[in-house]
Design a protein around this nucleic acid. Sequence first.
DNA 1: CTCGTTTTCTTGACTCGTTCCAGAAAACGT
DNA 2: ACGTTTTCTGGAACGAGTCAAGAAAACGAG
Lengths: 146, 146
Amino acid sequence: MTPGPRELLGEAGLRITAPRLAVLEWLADHPHATADQVAEGVRRRLGTVSTQAVYDVLNTCSRVKLVRRIEPAGHPARFETRTGDNHHHLVCRRCGRTVDVDCVHGAAPCLEPSDAAGFTVDEAEVTFWGLCGDCQVPRQDEELPA
Amino acid sequence: MTPGPRELLGEAGLRITAPRLAVLEWLADHPHATADQVAEGVRRRLGTVSTQAVYDVLNTCSRVKLVRRIEPAGHPARFETRTGDNHHHLVCRRCGRTVDVDCVHGAAPCLEPSDAAGFTVDEAEVTFWGLCGDCQVPRQDEELPA
DNA sequence: CTCGTTTTCTTGACTCGTTCCAGAAAACGT
DNA sequence: ACGTTTTCTGGAACGAGTCAAGAAAACGAG
């Protein structure tokens, strides 16, 4: 079965702390959350947690690959616990809403650049840009009416 | 032949100003420059130009597709005049150096997500991450020796 | 070519997301 | 239970980029 946050932290050699457990648990239920949203969710569960702690947990867990950080241009970073498979994302230009997209061509579609120009490539990141359902028509509340 | 900056601005319905010409010309010779680098280059040519003007020119020209803005996660935005073809980029995780990568599978390889989830997709952005030649070995100057 | 309108540039304050810092507090190994 | 190590708190700070008000240029009609 899927290991819980406690086990994951242990296996990664990280100490088990309330903020870490809360972040991981909350993130498992709310993928693609921003740091702010994570902080809010965690506080709702633990009472008070510093912004710093949240960033620290997120960064530490990113480093050991327990969470993946995605940074869509022009939007604050978002985090998810689905790691390992190199899936891609569909991001709304307007509200930043993000959804997972499985790799189109199976395993590694565009994973190899034709010419690496002396680079060592270790990841191919694919982002699809567009407008989500809610943002497609909404000239409504674009400007408040006089 | 390739139209010069002056013609491009005209066609786009934008006024022809010294800062704009200088930015476009400089960018044509220095693709993937950051806003700072553009400002520096333009100042070298025109004397004094406000940071604001540079951002304004870059944003305005982005809007009319005269320049493309790329924003690699964790690095300041970079700009290029090669627009229209949806080519991709290879970015150095460490120094941010960016090089163009032509689309591997011809026209639109991964352009269509398998499931759009109600989104209207208008662009597929592919970024290859790695280390450039200069950043692969350089544990040298990582820490200054005592 | 001059004038008036419109767009662009300058200067400087400011925001946002994120990190840095020092000290207090918790977690782990013995 | 204790000391060491790592993590958390609170607050200051940072970099990239934007906002706002007025001065200065560019266009185009007369």
